[in-house]
Amino acid sequence: MHEFLTAGIIGISLGAQYALLALGFTLIFGILGVINFAHGGFYALGGYVAYAAVSQAGLPFPLAVLVAVVATAALGALYERFLIERLVDDHLATMMLTLGLYLVISTSLLAVFGPQSPEFSFPVKGTLRAGTLYLPLENLVVLAVCAAAIGGLWLLIYRTDFGRALRALADDRRVAMTQGMRPGLLFPLAFGLATGLAGLTGALVTPILALSPSAGDPVLVTSFLTVILGGLGSIAGAVVAALIVGFVEAYASVYLGGSTGALILFVTVLVILLARPTGLFGREIRGA
C-alpha cells in the first residue's frame, strides 16, 4: 500500500512537469502548425538563464525564473519573426529550422557552461512526511506553478481577444486575415509564449532534477509523446495526456522496474492511439 500511494504522489508530480512541457509544444503546433524540435533547447536554456541569474548576477530565485521566461520568450519570438515566419507553411523547412536551433542552443550551452552539471538547487528545501509517505516541498511548488500556468494559459487563449485572434488564425488563416488578424505580429507572440513556457519549466524543474547542456534531449521525447497522446494542438489533451504519462510511468516503474516501465508507457500510448489515432482530444487539432 505504501508503494501504491507513493507512486500516486510521484505520478502527480511527473504529470505536472510533463504538462508544463507539453503545453508550449502543443500551442505552437495548434496555432502555427509547426512542430518545434527546439522545445527541449528552450527548456535547457531556461534552466541555464535562471542558473546564471542566481549564481552570477545574484538575483533571487523568483526573479531569476522571470528573467528565464522573458529571455526564452524573446528568443523564441525573434526566431519565429525572422526565420520561421518566412517558411511557416513548409513543414519540412520549419522542422529543420527548429532542429537546427536546438543543436545551436545545446552546443552553445556546452561551449559556455561546460559539460558538467552545475550546482543549482531549488531554494525551497524540506520534505513533507506522513508515515512512510513523503512529498518534497519543491515538487509542491512546481505543482502550484503548473496549475497556475495551465489556468492562465486557458484564460489567455479562451477568454481574451489575443486568444480569440490566435484561435481564429489556427482555424482558418485566410479568413482571419481578411478580418484584420495579423499573423506577422501574432505568430511571433504565440511562439514566444510557448518558448517562454518551456523556459519557465526549465527554470523551475532543472534545480529539482539536474541541469546540463543535454537536458533538453529527453524533454523533447516526452513532450512529443504527450502531445501525440493528447491530440496535437489540444491544450486540454496535453494536460490530460501528461497526467496519464506521469501515472503510467510512476506505477510501471515502481512495480515493474525502470526498463519494463518505459516499455509499458510506450505500449500504453500505442494502444490508446490504435483506439483513437488522432489522440485523446484529436478533434481539437487545428484545421488550417
Binding site: A210, D217, T222, V254
Partner: peptide
C-alpha cells in the same frame, strides 16, 4: 540489480522500487 532507461530525468519511481 535495478536498471533504468538511459535518458530518465526523474528517478523518484526507481528510488521507491530500490528502497522496497
Amino acid at each position: 540489480e535495478e536498471y533504468y532507461q538511459r535518458g530518465t530525468t526523474n528517478f523518484a519511481p526507481i528510488v521507491t522500487r530500490l528502497l522496497a
